[in-house]
């Protein structure tokens, strides 16, 4: 067995040791995970963003327009001192402002208009029968939206309709829970497979 598998296996076991109780080994591994993760993201961001998108084109290809994001980025570091903290608001303003500008049309189109359009389904089938699924979609959508509508008190008929919305929400939460169990178990199975076959070589 190679050293890589031994280290990966031991670290896996140390993380699992938390199931017994919190212990110094687990704490150590947890700190190492945080540190290594930050280091990894830092290096990848440095190489993929700062080098590839900023420094190389700016200094090798002389793309002078990149001075703007360079200064905006440097202004961000102004947060370290109380005297320069005002500078950091400029790059934040660029990010927040442009983000909001992009969000208006895209959110309206992709999340609202597209979704509303998809909800308009035929209520009757070709043979003239009721299309139950179509009715469920329309009633479910309207009642759930009614539940999130807070400008009117949830009382009387409106309240009952909003309550129907909570039933649909519960179905959504239930299915999501089912899939959450599935994904967590999948990861656990993956780790156990690694431990049993690669690390301990009990199974093939």
């Amino acid at each position: 067995m190679d050293i890589s598998t031994i280290i990966a296996g031991l670290l896996t076991l140390i993380i699992f040791s938390f199931l017994y109780k919190d212990n110094p080994f687990y704490k150590m591994a947890e700190s190492l995970l945080i540190g290594v993760s930050i280091g990894y993201v830092l290096v990848i961001t440095w190489s993929n963003t700062l080098m590839d998108m900023l420094f190389e084109p700016l200094f090798s290809n002389a793309e002078l327009s990149l001075i703007i994001p360079l200064f905006l980025g440097l202004f961000m570091l102004g947060r370290f001192s109380d005297k320069t903290v005002a500078l950091s608001r400029i790059p934040i303003a660029v990010m927040i402002g442009s983000g909001a500008g992009i969000a208006i049309p895209t959110m309206l189109y992709n999340r609202t208009i597209k979704q509303l359009t998809a909800s308009v389904m035929p209520i009757f089938t070709e043979s003239g029968g009721l299309n139950i699924s179509g009715i469920v979609v329309i009633v479910g959508l309207l009642s759930t939206l009614a539940y999130f509508y807070f400008s009117r008190e949830h009382k009387g008929k409106f309240g009952a309709f909003a309550k129907l919305g909570t039933y649909f929400l519960m179905i959504f939460f239930g299915t999501t829970f089912g899939y959450t169990v599935m994904s967590r178990m999948s990861t656990f199975i993956g780790r156990m497979e690694f431990l049993l076959s690669d690390f301990l070589k009990i199974t093939q």
Partner: peptide, 20 residues
């Protein structure tokens, strides 16, 4: 595909309008 999806869709529409 239907009851669960439609509740999630209502949440999405809410998020869309809220973000807007």
């Amino acid at each position: 595909n239907y009851p669960s999806m439609t509740a999630r869709r209502a949440i999405l529409i809410g998020i869309g309008l809220g973000s807007l």
